[in-house]
Design a protein around this nucleic acid. Sequence first.
DNA 1: GACATCATGTAAGCGGTTACATGATTTC
DNA 2: GAAATCATGTAACCGCTTACATGATGTC
Lengths: 215, 215
Amino acid sequence: MIRPGAAFMVANGIGRGQNRRVSLRCALLAQLNVEELSGYELTRRFAGFPGLFWQARSQQVYPELARLEEQGLLTSRVVEQQSRPDKRLYSITDTGRKRLGDWILSDSPPSFAKDDFLMKVWSYGVVDPASARRQLAVHRTLHELRLARFEDAAREHAPAEVSHLDPREFGEQLTVQAGIHLERSLLAWCETADEWLRAREDATPPGASPEERSA
Amino acid sequence: MIRPGAAFMVANGIGRGQNRRVSLRCALLAQLNVEELSGYELTRRFAGFPGLFWQARSQQVYPELARLEEQGLLTSRVVEQQSRPDKRLYSITDTGRKRLGDWILSDSPPSFAKDDFLMKVWSYGVVDPASARRQLAVHRTLHELRLARFEDAAREHAPAEVSHLDPREFGEQLTVQAGIHLERSLLAWCETADEWLRAREDATPPGASPEERSA
DNA sequence: GACATCATGTAAGCGGTTACATGATTTC
DNA sequence: GAAATCATGTAACCGCTTACATGATGTC
């Protein structure tokens, strides 16, 4: 029996089918497609590289690498080191490369559906404007930091020569550009938001309660 | 014993402590702070309202509402309807309003850490540029649709009068503005990405393999 | 000796998705 | 009578986080 109902859920692109473990798996394959890496190094990149729009901690990375090897998408070898603990380097197999290629060109609706901070902003009408402005200022500096990191990563690449970048840097620079666009737009929004709050601050008597009730 | 190690994880703002069930809970409180609503209506809004930067399905909403009532942050009453099934309307309590106020002004580092599509773009150097451009075109139309919905929601609100908006609309319009800024920046990025790919297309022999290996 | 980096995990629990279930009413 | 909306859930599972564990090597 086919179940009816709730067509509005389907109509608006909700982040459905986003995962199914696919994305982490492919984020790992994508990086190992370029070079041989250890779980530790992959974790480090997830944590620190701007332009890598995914993240995972070591507790997730190591088991996933093992699973990918078991499935034949990766192979690994142990490298013995002096002055450091030994490590296991993973590299992609032909099967893995095939899987990666399929994934890259598969459908993927845009994300950005959930945002803690913007959910708070949604209630900025019912809190003290001055407090909101203070929170907004902190938020802006965090975005400024992010923008600076993206711009650092973009430096030394004249846009005229992008077609001659090697495969790895080409994609990386594209995502860095996305980061720059995003951060700049959010900083611009911070400006207008601050203006709106300032106007509201002026319109509200200074002694008003920090928690106004809804009209 | 204090555990050392991995300071780089802490240095770069990783989406830690983002949840702890707090955000869904407060997204519900925020909406019930404005008006009395049913679980069904809340679910509908999560699915369809631009400017509401959170989402949850009915399966998550109903149990969470029950939990919030149990904790005294909400109360509910059953409304009998003819021509429709009865429904339960929830409203916020003073305790709930207090909790909400605390949450709104609490810290929240920016999100946007994971993105399926941009993770694919990261590998755009190793796939056929023409295929990538096709995927990008689809992606762009989705963002155009989103932008249109945000702009619809923003219409009829002259920016000059924002300070006189009622509390609910003030916050909502702020988030709608954020959506507009975001979507426009992503559309602008799509333009440059398409240019980069076109340049790469011209630089690559047309008969090249759809899956180039990394140099 | 305290702390940091390098390197690799296990176990429990939470937030969220997928699949499934129920039933009344309205519209074509 | 088929399909859609309105209305409210339960059960299983997955992805991810939190907490914890281990141990070698290098640095102040």
